[in-house]
């Protein structure tokens, strides 16, 4: 299963090579061409099928980001412990007692905390900041550690993808490998427009891959496939769950970086209704996606987002529903051919 391979692949922002290799191996079978740009984006083109193609085909950019949040080794202490920096928005509270894989050779390491026996109540009331934590790979000294790891090495959570519950899956990096998997599926099909599939880099550190992809490809419209916040656990105050797991793909009306193109967002919602596909609106004005950069490319690109609700994103184990995944794919398949007919 492609989603499983993608989730297990290791690709922290700035180090997406392994994910890129998986994706290009898949694309070679289906697209007309692709290239890797200066940021490491995969920019693929699947030309319009003859059916329905006008003389100048419509250019639709669909983007999903390859990178995941993770850790970067910044320095090795004399005793061989690895100092690290968080890449992307990771909550310090999920780091203690995690296992990680470090560097090209996926060297296992653990993040330890002072034992409960030796801590005071006031220490236990404090979050230990990431810069006070270390990765322990079992090295005896700096020199010993340098045999397998150098500063600049990236570490990912050592989580293995697995299915569980009612058609749910658990894994790291589902934000946004779920989107990558959707886009890989879409790239197999034929559409009446030129499909530019952009697998982007460095989304988690500032939408950087998307920014240059949007400029280079200059599309007529853009759609972003994302995994988004899902906060549907019970809470003390009645407030928005942002999205609900299993309630269908989530459509963005507005988020922290985008006011969705109205006609495009409406087309997605109407298509879902017509095809009797479940869908939901994501809580407006929270979060952000590559669309924040894409819609500002050049003289502006009409943009929208389809998201898959993902619990516990930016942690070692996110959870998504394969029903949502399947419905997102159905929705995209049904809606995409209608996009070129919109009056932009």
């Amino acid at each position: 299963m492609l989603l499983e391979k993608l989730s297990n692949a290791r690709g922290v922002s700035g180090d997406e090579g392994a994910v890129r290799a998986l994706i290009t191996a898949h694309l070679r079978k289906y697209v007309d061409e692709y290239r890797i740009d200066a940021l490491g984006n995969v920019l693929a083109l699947k030309r319009a099928s003859r059916r329905g193609a006008s003389r100048v085909p419509f250019k639709l950019l669909i983007a999903a980001h390859m990178d995941e949040v993770g850790l970067l080794v910044t320095h090795i202490d004399r005793d061989g412990a690895l100092q690290f920096e968080k890449i992307g928005g990771i909550d310090d509270r999920v780091l203690p007692a995690q296992s990680v894989l470090v560097g090209k050779h996926a060297t296992p390491g653990v993040i330890g905390l002072k034992p409960r026996h030796l801590t005071t109540a006031s220490e236990r009331a404090q979050v230990v900041p990431a810069d006070a934590l270390r990765i322990d790979i079992g090295a005896t000294s700096r020199e010993d550690a340098l045999r397998v790891v150098a500063p600049g090495a990236y570490a990912t959570f050592a989580t293995t993808f697995r299915a569980f519950g009612d058609n749910c899956v658990r894994g790291k990096a589902l934000d946004d490998r779920a989107g990558c998997a959707l886009l890989c599926e879409l790239a197999r099909e034929n559409f009446p427009f030129d499909l530019y599939a952009a697998f982007t880099t460095q989304e988690e550190i500032g939408l950087r891959g998307a920014r240059v992809a949007g400029h280079a490809l200059a599309p007529d419209a853009a759609l972003v496939l994302e995994a988004t916040i899902c906060d549907d656990s019970p809470k003390s105050r009645e407030q928005s769950p942002t999205t609900r797991l299993g309630a269908g793909p989530a459509l963005t009306l507005a988020d922290g970086g985008l006011l969705a193109h109205k006609a495009l967002a409406r087309l997605l919602a109407e298509t879902a209704q017509e095809h009797k596909l479940p869908f939901q609106y994501k809580q407006p004005l929270v979060g952000g996606t590559d669309a924040g950069a894409l819609h500002r490319a050049r003289a502006g690109v009409p943009s929208a987002v389809i998201s898959i609700p993902a619990r516990y994103i930016h942690s070692p184990a996110a959870v998504i529903s394969l029903d949502d995944f399947g419905n997102a794919l159905k929705l995209a398949r049904a809606a995409l051919p209608r996009i070129p007919d919109l009056d932009f």
Binding site: L253, L285, V286
Partner: peptide, 17 residues
């Protein structure tokens, strides 16, 4: 402002534009 959530009693939460 933009409505971000409607609670069971019909009160709206909002975000700033």
């Amino acid at each position: 402002v933009m409505v971000t959530f409607l609670d069971a009693r019909g009160f709206a939460r909002f975000g700033m534009l």
